[in-house]
Amino acid sequence: MAQISTKKKPVGAMIVMGIISIALYTTLLLKQDLLNENFAKGGWFALLPIITAFVFSYFHGSFTGSFWTVLGVEASKKKKEVK
């Protein structure tokens, strides 16, 4: 199979992750009071903000990664000698 000279851009992945990310943020802002009430309870509820942070970082992190790749902003192709 012939190789394409330009890599295919992850537009699909970006859109999917972007939608999920927007959904997460919309929920965050619409349900502010409910979240603050429960997340500030302390004790075992402390896990709630931690888990939330991991969830956001997974989806939003994937989205932002694809975002830059789709825009063509990627690491240098030159192999840099780190040490």
């Binding site: 997460l24 943020y25 965050l28 603050n36 500030a40 309870k41 402390a46 931690i50 942070a53």
Partner: peptide, 23 residues
Amino acid sequence: AMHGMVDIRLAMIILGGSLFGIQ
């Protein structure tokens, strides 16, 4: 968080911008 000190809205909004920036 165990003392209920985290405002998750602030943390996530900042994270929203910083994940673009850090990459």
